[in-house]
Simulated scan of single mutants.
Amino acid sequence: MVPYIIRRLLIALPVLIGITIINFIIINLAPGNPVEMMIDPNTSQELIEAKKEMLGLNSPAIVQYGKWMMSLMQGNLGYSFSSFAPVSQLIAERIGPTLLLTFTSLLISLAIAIPAGIYSAVKHNTKVDYILTGLSFIGTSMPQFFLGLGVIYVFSLKLNLLPSGGMGVLGGGGGVLDTLWHLILPASVLAVGIVGKKIRYVRASMLDVLHQDYLRTARAKGVGEFMVTNRHALRNALLPIITVFAIEIPLLLGGSILIEQIFQWPGIGQLTMQSILSRDYPTLMALNLVAAIIVLATNLLTDMIYAVADPRVKYN
């Protein structure tokens, strides 16, 4: 396992470099530039050019990318064009709330999708199976922005049960309970789409193993149905389940941008939108780099979990 992890880390370096190059090209191909977003339209062309020179935007693209890479190798992500604060500080302030939101929604979806998928497979072609499958299709097809606005209207405006946004009460003392209270709606909305998709994956994976010979043998030996399903069958169905849930993590990071806007959650989703609107190149480059690192780390962690879930998996 250790040599395999080392090889994966070495392979990740050129992948990250390639991602930064593609991101740099895409960001610079976008119309407009940071100076146009921060200067009055009536400003003279001379002042605009002076501002571009100060920010290094007049240099050729390859030179700009080279300077960014040199700063990155020194541990410096640069400074925001809009706020002039260190980009590392901006991301450090925002990444915690985003990770809290995404992993909470992932845990919620795991807690619902796996038992529901198992039960749907065990009750194959029954009314319960049809109901769970139908609900999964509804959850998958429900637009997150529509669901988010809907739950705010019902639970915040009409029933006044849950806060409509933010991460804490304004002017309050905060605390863990206050944060969890504000987390319920955004995490639940983000989890609905995952649950809808994953119930079907878990169901399909369980159906593949429920009628295998070794399970018939276990039943013939007198092993209870609960142990047969949740220990023997689930253990052998785990690999595809682990895969589909691992794939969901980068999608969660993307989906959190919309959810954070709706619920005013102070994470990197809001920072991403602000950076896009202000053409804040250094912040966008750093955010894409962080997202790429999270995805690569998730893939590596998934491979390690494979070996834990199934001892037959070997990495040579």
Rank of each mutant, 00 (worst) to 15 (best):
H211P: 00
L238C: 06
L100T: 11
A92Q: 12
D213M: 04
K51H: 11
Q45S: 13
L162F: 14
T179I: 13
W265R: 08
P163K: 11
Y130H: 15
I152Q: 12
A218K: 05
I184A: 08
P60N: 03
Y306G: 04
V169M: 12
I241H: 01
P34Q: 10
P60W: 01
I249M: 03
V151Q: 02
I118N: 00
V169R: 11
Q64T: 06
N236G: 04
Y130D: 10
V195D: 07
S59Q: 15
L239W: 07
V244I: 14
M70R: 11
S71T: 05
V228L: 00
E49I: 10
G254A: 07
L210C: 02
V195F: 03
Y201T: 10
L162R: 05
R216A: 02
S109A: 15
L207V: 03
H182N: 02
L29Q: 14
L180E: 00
D213G: 04
K127H: 09
G78Q: 07
G148E: 02
D280S: 07
S88F: 09
M1S: 13
N125Q: 15
N28W: 03
F155Q: 08
Q270M: 14
F84D: 12
P163N: 06
K158S: 09
H124K: 15
D213C: 03
D303W: 11
V313A: 01
N42V: 06
G173H: 09
A246N: 13
V192Q: 07
R203A: 00
E46R: 13
L252M: 01
T229K: 00
N33C: 04
W68S: 06
L271D: 06
